[in-house]
Design a protein around this nucleic acid. Structure first.
Lengths: 134, 134, 134, 134
DNA sequence: GTGGTCTAGACCACT
DNA sequence: GTGGTCTAGACCACG
């Protein structure tokens, strides 16, 4: 779990997203207790208030629940986490495609460019070569 | 050129991006005069000041230049625009991949999911043709 | 720090320059918090928006950085400030010499005239001592 | 006479200054007819209106006078021109010194820095000859 | 008619 | 209380 914040969006939302990602990825087991607000604050070098707000955000999505006096726990159903993770991924895909379309790339072209990028990055490793259309 | 704003990022930045995309896509010819600030304001249903701020952003990236009292013009080099468009696309790809990685998707998995999405969306219609150059 | 504005250049630029000079001169310590936008506005008898624009300029040059909701701070490296100050001074010198050349003064002539001016101003008092390098 | 304009100040003022400098430097003889507005416009690649406004500015300072139907002429007294040139130079010197003071440079320091710059630029070539007082 | 500047004032999100 | 955004509207210099 990395805490790298950038300037142009609110810290608490960035933080919320990082935590969500960690949770749906199973980095925290279902039912497990999360680190305390204070601890998260110190880890992420932010204000406890900010952490609290972030967690509130996460709780709003049903990923965690707070047990009074005891702390915050990952909501139980592991399958739901997986569901959630998939949904987030699809959301990213859709966003990616529409953003690319605004740049004039068709879905196929986007796919091709991405494939090329992945292939180049992995440096001629595995078949599938070079369909750079755009 | 569509002006649809969403809530969570400043209008002037969204506006800047829309204009940038339009320019690098060649929607405005190099050397061409842009619509006046006031006109863009009326088109986008925003305040001229907001438009000005957006255009300042765009100018900062070297895509346009302003000739005093005459208007704003697309900076000349057409090839640079194409260059810019490609750079923006690559940027989107990189961002997409790292976002997916934060969700625990390897690059190949991301690619696969995206491909599946594209294929499903086109509903087995035209599989792999239609790779027309933009 | 004096706020004296003259007519022929935009206030926000004059303001930016005043602040820059103050910063590179060490009038604000590195890491120190600047007065709030509102306060500077009241000090300089201008609108907060104008101050904000000026500070944006200054930030663009890397002299300050803004911490969300907390304030604007002098960017850390003290040495860079000194560097910057020197660069500004050299810039002034170059500008001075080329302006003089446009009036037909060679660099030596410019130097001589300036020296004479300085000497006359100090009215033969302490001629040539105290040339401590800045 | 060079026509290089920059963005941040009105063209007509920059133009006026260039013409003034040329005149007080004797680039145009006293009593000589100036190039026509149209010609100056074409030389400087500006609008005739702009040239006219610039000339108006110059005329306001008494450097030229217009003879109806015949054109604009350099005002007679050559000595006045020299006077004017000197005044402009002194003005530049004063401005230079006060600008440097805003950066924390004393007059002696400014002088020293400038001297160093001139010396370095001429790369120990002709040390200290050619100090003909203007 | 063009862009630029400036003000006044409101609202917001964040800490 | 902090900076940021946005609006509305005025005025200016320029060409």
């Amino acid at each position: 779990m990395q805490f790298n914040f950038e300037n142009h969006s609110p810290v608490y939302l960035q933080l919320a997203r990082i935590l969500e990602d960690a949770i749906v990825c199973g980095e925290f087991e279902p039912g497990q207790k999360l680190p305390s607000v204070r601890e998260l604050a110190s880890l992420s070098r932010t204000n406890p208030n900010t952490v609290a707000k972030a967690l509130q955000e996460v709780e709003g999505k049903g990923l965690i629940e707070t047990r009074r006096t005891s702390g915050k726990y990952v909501s139980l159903p592991a399958t739901a986490m997986e569901e959630n993770r998939k949904e987030k991924a699809c959301q990213l895909c859709r966003q990616f495609l529409t953003d690319m379309e605004k740049l004039g790339y068709s879905q196929q072209q986007s796919l091709a460019l991405l494939k090329k990028g992945v292939f180049d990055a992995s440096e001629h490793s595995e078949s599938e070569k070079e369909i750079r259309q755009p």
